[in-house]
Design a protein around this nucleic acid. Structure first.
Lengths: 210, 210
DNA sequence: AAATAAATACGTAGTAACACGTAATTTTAG
DNA sequence: CTAAAATTACGTGTTACTACGTATTTATTT
């Protein structure tokens, strides 16, 4: 049984060692490892492995940026990302990029084997655990989905400390229009009528405003 | 040379494996490992190792909670925490608890050896990297120290989404007084004159308002 | 006891945000 | 092509926050 060639990269030495040792012990065909995004991409370009297991956050290049670069350069390496938080965005990006799965920090080692096996077969791997978490959260984002593109854009700018007038000149519209948008957003989000409730909401949900 | 006995615990299998393999290879006296806080504490109680290297965030018991429990039960095991973010709080807690050092996720493996060696000698280990980060930030907190107790209290309430009038009735003072305090705070913090700059500042520095 | 700092409070005035309504224009979708 | 949705814009009025000055009453400190 010929095993797929694999490279790995992570900027956390301990994690890299854990993964490296694990793959070696299990006799995977580990052909390279890197400590940051740049090294990882170079390894992929040079060795064109079947699978690259990459940390999502690395210096110079993130795992996602590497995935994008691979795609635009028509590299067929299948990307598996390691992440410490369950990020729903990944699931969506996975469809567009060559991201075939992701490994959560608290995965059992067997699950990692499952992941590699599935990806090796050319299928995408998203564990039940992740799917569960992905289907739990959308309740909050429902509200966000009701917003129109303009409203979302304005919400983002509010979260970035912009005043109405600043937003207005950034978007080349009247500041009165921005006010109207704010008003509509407040209605759609069902915010309590209180001063600055929108700013507060925007600040607290900034991370969900991708 | 007799090496100190060590136990380790982490709920991230990969990291646990990395650390475990590393210590074994380097011939440290690794006598046990656990997958969560409860297991970790039981190991400490049963084996009373010289050193326990613990993840800071684990199910059931956090690394810090374990340190506290050890202290109240007069267990002399020296605690080293593994953390993914540089947390300044740790440095202060280390003084009170039996926390002898901490390992950052992006530590090189040599630095981990340094840490264990230092702790083994009964000294506390805080790497230059950490001290640097700890000494860089207080500049911001300097400003906070200029604030009077009342001003800090009000700042906290602002960060908790309270309006002037709400703050006023909470503190049994006039809302005009609150306004004056706000004004003074803005001056002391040198905030740019922009709508809601104080609220924005309070939101962004909420964590520093202990 | 005197000086200093902090907390309290108000006057006046300007700006930003919010509420609610109306309405024209443009885009999108069926 | 037509209906619906989204974007644009304004009128009018209210409330909250901000700026700056003044001033009295409490602590705190020397």
């Amino acid at each position: 049984m010929r095993k797929d060639s694999i490279i790995i990269a992570d900027d956390h030495p301990l994690l890299l060692k854990g993964l490296s040792d694990f793959l070696s012990e299990k006799n995977y065909n580990l052909i390279g490892q890197g400590n940051d995004g740049r090294e990882a991409y170079n390894l992929i370009a040079k060795l064109s492995p079947d699978i690259a297991i990459l940390d999502i956050q690395m210096p110079y290049l993130s795992g996602i940026e590497i995935a994008k670069k691979c795609q635009s350069n028509h590299l067929k390496t299948k990307i598996v990302l390691i992440t410490f938080h369950k990020e729903r965005e990944l699931y969506h990006q996975a469809q567009e990029l060559n991201i075939f799965g992701y490994i959560l920090k608290d995965f059992a080692l067997e699950e990692i084997e499952n992941c590699i096996k599935t990806v090796s077969d050319g299928k995408r791997f998203f564990s039940p655990k992740i799917m569960e978490l992905l289907s739990l959260k959308p309740k909050q984002n429902d509200e966000l989905d009701h917003l129109t593109p303009s409203e979302k854009k304005i919400l983002k700018l509010i979260a970035n400390d912009k005043t109405n007038k600043e937003i207005a000149s950034l978007l080349f519209i009247s500041h009165r229009t921005v006010e109207k948008h704010r008003s509509n957003i407040i209605n759609k989000l069902n915010l309590e009528q209180k001063t600055n409730s929108l700013l507060i909401w925007a600040k607290e949900h900034q991370n969900q405003l991708h």
